[in-house]
Design a protein around this nucleic acid. Structure first.
Lengths: 192, 192
DNA sequence: GGCAATCCATACTCTTCCGTATGGTTTCTG
DNA sequence: CAGAAACCATACGGAAGAGTATGGATTGCC
């Protein structure tokens, strides 16, 4: 039995630290990102950390950049391959709704918008996603101005939902009820 | 010239500390709530604080309770006096949109959902507001299930908007554009 | 196998912040 | 006006966490 459940790599790389940092952020938020805590969790001491990174901020920045670039090809990459623009938005909604796992980091970062390091990252990511939504709404038939506002509304609903049902544990909505909610969203937000 | 701009009250009460705490939370978040910092800001030292409160947690709890009860009579109290149920929702949207000042504490608390003390408060407040929205939608003509989902969607959009345009500084939407967005929300979310 | 680069442990320092102890000062009250 | 209660300052102790210094261990490479 080992302390952590990791398969006991004898030596660590910078990537290992970054991934562990993202994992910890998803679980306990950016505020909980302490180097000694991370080191314990990885089965080493601070001595290791300060070889790979110059400071704690450096680790956070590296982890954020890694997360940003991963999300770029993964989250948006898939969806862009749905040919029919009319099918694209409902499909997007349903997919996002049913894999809330990758959104944990995003939810954690939403709560860390006071840390100056995360603001630019979140600004870029949110901006790109909103632009994606905007063009999707235009392709679905909305005029430019309406498409933009609908994208704002949609993305705000997404962000708010993360906060309310993910972080906060609001009246724990169950599975069927949740599906009904998603379909209600689709019916309300996507033009027929 | 004084250190802070406060009118130099010679002695302080518990209420003074609670109000100062809320102010600080609105400005810099819950994490910045430190007793020595607050004391400096009030022109006294820790000695004063620990006469009024047993601990830092006690201050936070007191401040949260004060905020919760204030919001209860202020935010919801006014709106309930709008007679026509059909006019009520659009009016609510427009009012909320144009006094974002009282929402700063709420936005700050959204980012503090990892602190166990704020979770129950936010759960209660959000729950009450959602119930209010749900009955408003029913009075506007929606059947029960749809009213509930529409309330969820609306409130999520509200919360998300706070995060995106308040905390994060997303493409600084200007005044006219913002009004157009609010009207778009009304047209999209409120049944004709 | 031995040398150099890489990786890590140990043992510090420094800062920040919570909380306590204790005595002083102001204000209220009889 | 005197004593008590309310309020505050100063000076500690202690925990937590960032960063540094330095030497030991491990690995790749010739």
């Amino acid at each position: 039995m080992n302390v952590s459940s990791k398969p006991e790599r004898t030596r660590l790389s910078a990537e290992d630290w970054e991934l562990a940092a993202l994992h910890l952020i998803a679980e306990q938020g950016v505020g909980a990102l302490a180097v000694e805590a991370l080191a314990r969790q990885l089965g080493v001491t601070k001595g290791s950390f300060y070889w790979h990174f110059r400071t704690r901020e450096a680790l956070l920045n590296a982890a954020l950049e890694r997360w940003e670039q991963y999300g770029e090809r993964e989250v948006l990459g898939q969806i862009e391959q749905i040919a029919d623009p009319r099918k694209r938005l409902p499909e997007l909604f349903r997919r996002v709704a049913h894999e809330l796992q990758p959104h944990r980091v995003y939810a954690a970062l939403l709560k860390a918008l006071d840390h100056p390091q995360v603001v630019p990252v979140m600004a870029r990511v949110s901006q790109r996603r909103m632009e994606f939504l905007t063009t999707a709404y235009r392709e679905a038939g909305l005029p430019a101005q309406q498409a933009l506002n609908r994208a704002r509304l949609t993305y705000a609903a997404y962000v708010g939902f993360l906060q309310l049902n993910f972080t906060l544990g609001l009246p724990r909505i169950n599975h069927e009820e949740f599906d009904a909610y998603v379909e209600h969203m689709i019916a309300t937000l996507i033009p027929a």
